[in-house]
Design a protein around this nucleic acid. Sequence first.
DNA 1: ATGCCTGCAAAATCTTTGCAGTAGA
DNA 2: TCTACTGCAAAGATTTTGCAGGCAT
Lengths: 147, 147
Amino acid sequence: MNHNTKDTHNLFSQYLSEQNLRMTTQRELILKTFCKQKKHVTAEQLYEVLKKVDPTIGHATVYRTMKLLTEAGIARELNFGEGSVRYEPDTSKEHHDHLVCVKCGENIEFLDEEIENLQKRVVTKYGYELVDHSLNLYGICPKCQKS
Amino acid sequence: MNHNTKDTHNLFSQYLSEQNLRMTTQRELILKTFCKQKKHVTAEQLYEVLKKVDPTIGHATVYRTMKLLTEAGIARELNFGEGSVRYEPDTSKEHHDHLVCVKCGENIEFLDEEIENLQKRVVTKYGYELVDHSLNLYGICPKCQKS
DNA sequence: ATGCCTGCAAAATCTTTGCAGTAGA
DNA sequence: TCTACTGCAAAGATTTTGCAGGCAT
């Protein structure tokens, strides 16, 4: 499920040194905390969690580090149209899309090979080179249908 | 292609009176101008166009009206992760998804019945009731591949 | 007249940036 | 040591809200 923290730490260290950047205690802590999260978090939510561990940490550091983690391929930005970006671990090999409940926010990750293949077909048809894609299905979950 | 302006005007008038709201000259102008746009516009871009016709129009009115048009089912919000929301005419009967070039922003609308059906299958599988969905494919267009 | 609507400006969010001091390698 | 990194606060960007006056019904 979750990334193995050691793996991502190595990945991040490698990315940083390639870019002539440094591993710092803050970046280590942010990565570790991010990987522990069970849900897709916003930078702000992650900041709130981090403050409990290290009250001196700053907003900007969280934002800057999440950007780095995204560039390193460790995190992935999700946009559900809420006004702020959410992040999930980016395990490229386990790509998936999202089914979000518009009432309670419950969030299911799914993967449908057929949809993936059809997407590639569309892209090819127009001569594009696929870089990324985002498929969000918005609905009402079984619980919310009852209430 | 575009909505027939008269149709949307009637739709909007009807929606407004249902909600005990009023048709105003500003709302008429915003709707008319929005329908004329060939590309997906942000509220800010639309405001810039509107200012040329009516220099007294305010930011807030554009934002408020686009929200109303969305509720009325005439406009549809698109989020390509740019930081601001774009709007397109929402012709529910002609639903489509988007293929966006990450370099030049060129934007192709497409519809793939098979993908649509597979989406419904996923939603049903999890017991959800489908409300909406958004599929964005990001790639590099043929022109940008060459340069 | 009633009360919705408008433009303006201020506020609210979310995110980025400049700066002076701090700390990795 | 050298220069990237940090926290802070200010600045940016987008969108929302409060208000006093205006306009539709």
